[in-house]
């Protein structure tokens, strides 16, 4: 399956896409992505999760992805911004790609811009 066909419906900014494609084409390297979280899909309301729920949403999402692809806890790093409903993730490109498919992720962008 090509990288393009694996892409999710999550809004992904072009710079993050470039970094993911570049990382996938070379040796495994960590990609840093800033993720905007949304409330779990079981709830009717959309929008960012409440501050006390954002950490839980991020933790469950990343644990699920790690289990799906067999990644260890040390393979990725993340930090949650609970008041904003955002999370920053540092992980191999394949891990980040899988995270982008998850329903809790509304959009994603690169943490580091060119330069």
């Amino acid at each position: 399956m090509s990288a393009r066909s694996r892409r999710s419906k999550t809004l992904v900014d072009p710079e993050l896409r470039r970094q993911l494609d570049q990382a996938a084409a070379s040796k495994p390297a960590a990609v840093e992505a800033v993720l905007r979280l949304r409330r779990p899909p079981t709830r009717r309301s959309s929008g960012e999760p409440a501050p006390d729920a954002a950490r839980d949403v991020a933790r469950k999402l990343l644990t699920r992805v790690a289990e799906e692809i067999g990644a260890a806890a040390g393979d990725y790093d993340f930090n949650v911004f609970p008041n904003l409903g955002y999370c920053v993730l540092s992980a191999p490109a394949g891990f980040v790609e899988r995270v982008l498919h998850q329903p809790e992720v509304a959009s994603a962008s690169a943490n580091r811009r060119r330069g």
Partner: peptide, 15 residues
């Protein structure tokens, strides 16, 4: 200078 640094500051100040 990363996006996450600024987000960290925004989140902190909002809290």
């Amino acid at each position: 200078d990363t996006v996450a640094r600024v987000l960290g500051g925004m989140d902190w100040s909002l809290g």
